[in-house]
Amino acid sequence: MSKLLSTFNKVSAPNTATVLLVGAEGTSKHKLAEAMLNIDTDFNLNMLTASSLPLPKDESDSRPPVNFVVFVIDLSNVLSMTIVESSVKYLDVDYFLGRCCFVVMKAEDPDNQNVEMMAVTGLSDVYQSPMLCGDVKTIRNCQCLARKLLSMVEIAGGFKFGVTPLLIDATRNTFNFEEEL
């Protein structure tokens, strides 16, 4: 139980959001974290990175509470997928109410994929968390992805007046509809 990462077990610093990036080695999560830090925001942004969950035990209690978790999956890297699949289980259920998302890298190149896209969409459906595709190869694309993540962090952190992740989620229609693409 203590291994679970939880949002509300610590008091957060005012006007501060902490984002945790989880992804295997070589998923360029540091580049993404840097891009996010380089964008101006109204709130203080802390970025943490981890190669897998659960996190080691926080003995000195120095770790801030995590507001938002981003799982990075590289479709050319099978390990990144298995790590995410095993790590998701260590998140508290609160995170799946709009406080976590999956970032998929190299989704545009079907010839070099070792992970099935369907597996990732399945994961995103099971955990009811959004999936974003993008890459960090060019500055333009990297910034585009970082901005998207930041706008989700802003809402999840409660910095948007009158908007919560659940409100956003309420606009979604769900049907059990499947058709082969």
């Binding site: 959004p130 999936m131 993540l149 706008s151 979604r172 229609n173 049907f175 509809f177 058709e179």
Partner: peptide
């Protein structure tokens, strides 16, 4: 609408809420 929602509107909705 089921088809339209899942194949067209849902991806766009996702982008709508995390873009400027």
């Amino acid at each position: 609408f089921e088809k339209m929602n899942d194949l067209l509107l849902e991806p766009l909705r996702k982008l709508y809420f995390c873009s400027g």
